[in-house]
Simulated assay, not measured.
Amino acid sequence: MSRIGKKAVAIPAGVTATINDRILVVKGPKGELSMPLVDDISYTIEAAEIAVLPASDTKRARSFWGMQRTLVSNLVTGVSDGFTKVLLITGVGYRASVQGANLKLQLGYSHDVDFAIPDGITIKTPDPTTVEITGSDKQRVGQVAAEIRRWRKPEPYKGKGIKYRGEVIFRKEGKKK
Rank of each mutant, 00 (worst) to 15 (best):
R152V: 08
K163Q: 12
A146D: 09
I123Q: 08
K7Y: 02
K30P: 04
K160V: 08
L24Y: 05
V79Q: 03
T122N: 11
L71K: 14
F115H: 11
Y94L: 14
V168Y: 13
E167A: 13
S136L: 10
A48F: 07
I89Q: 00
Q68C: 08
T122R: 14
L37T: 12
G91E: 00
I45Q: 14
T18I: 11
S63R: 06
R22P: 00
K85R: 14
G108L: 03
T84A: 10
V79D: 01
Q143Y: 10
D81C: 01
R62Y: 12
V98Q: 09
V9G: 08
I19F: 03
I45D: 13
L33D: 02
T18M: 09
V141F: 05
A55G: 14
T125Y: 09
R152C: 11
Y43Q: 00
R152L: 14
G66N: 15
G120R: 01
D127M: 04
L33A: 07
G28S: 08
P126F: 02
A8H: 03
A101D: 12
I117T: 03
D112H: 02
A116E: 09
P156S: 14
P118G: 02
Q139D: 05
A13Y: 02
V38Q: 13
V52S: 07
V113H: 02
A146R: 08
V76G: 06
S80G: 02
K59M: 02
Y43P: 00
G78T: 08
E49R: 15
T84M: 10
I89H: 00
R152K: 15
K7L: 06
